[in-house]
Design a binder for these strands. Structure first.
Length: 259
DNA sequence: AGGTATGTTAATTG
DNA sequence: GCAATTAACATACC
């Protein structure tokens, strides 16, 4: 489930469990693609360090590990942050145990997640071509960044280099709230529609951040609670159209979101 | 058993 | 160079 609000929830949990704690033991249960830094580097960046501030840019979470190094985590499709008790949680890929007891784990059954090290969150975002976080970006900056693009509106929202944090579900929600067909090309959107899209995205994410990751808590008047085959548009009752846009499963209201 | 999945990236094609 | 599409990654779940 990890999109911006979910990752923000992971960050808060990580911070609650780990901030101010000193790492006594590091277990790395990840190899290959999951590790963007050598295992030995991850180990030495964390072992013996007191964990500090946490940050989030888009779908990446960062935790300062002292020694001017930050741990960076991406949660792929199935990543999570879990508290560690006696034994490692299932699918643990990185386990940190603290001096004095307790610990925190990065779990990820499907192994699409990533474990990395960074000099700073900003430097990491630069190196990896991450655009500004969707909750930090201003409307003006959004308009400037999408100017001249010809991609479809959904592909635009999913492009982490344009803005970081929006994934498949929240892209659908934002487009539905803004009444924009997901395949509409940006160049065909009036300035007013572009602003509408930005505001819909921002307000939807802001509301989601009240209870990160809790999709049950979303208003029933929104798209996401109805986003399934056979679901109906909560505004007009029309059956939602399922399809593939930008290579991803997409739902929209065929009556209200026209090209 | 087969289809699907909230993410990213490389390869391919237009 | 840009944009769209598809496959691949690795695994769980229905």
């Amino acid at each position: 489930m990890p999109e911006l609000p979910d990752v923000e929830g992971f960050r808060r949990r990580f911070e609650r469990l780990a901030k101010g704690r000193t790492v006594a033991r590091v277990d790395v249960e990840a190899r290959g693609r999951m590790l963007l830094a050598p295992e030995s580097a991850v180990r030495s960046a964390l072992r013996g360090r007191r964990l500090g501030a946490t940050r989030r840019i888009g779908k990446w979470m960062f935790a300062k590990a002292g020694g001017d190094l930050w741990l960076a985590l991406h949660f792929g499709m199935t990543g999570d942050v879990e508290e560690v008790g006696e034994r490692d949680p299932p699918y643990a890929r990185l386990v940190l145990r603290f001096r004095g007891g307790g610990g925190v784990a990065f779990t990820d059954p499907r192994r699409f997640g990533r474990i990395a090290l960074a000099a700073s969150p900003e430097a990491f975002a630069d190196e990896h071509g991450l655009g500004p976080d969707a909750m930090e970006l201003t409307e003006r900056a959004f308009l400037r960044r999408i100017e001249g693009r010809r991609v479809g509106a959904k592909a635009l929202l999913l492009d982490q280099g344009v803005l970081a944090g929006v994934g498949n579900l929240w892209a659908d929600e934002a487009l539905w709230q803004a009444r924009i067909h997901p395949a509409t090309r940006v160049e065909d959107l009036e300035d007013e529609a572009r602003r509408r899209l930005f505001r819909a995205m921002r307000s939807a994410l802001r509301r989601a951040l009240r209870k990160p990751g809790d999709y049950e808590a979303l208003p029933r008047t929104w798209l996401l609670p109805h986003r399934r085959v056979g679901g109906r548009c909560p505004r007009c009752g029309e059956r939602l159209a399922p399809g593939a846009v930008a290579g991803r499963t997409t739902f929209w209201c065929p009556k209200e979101q026209r090209r």
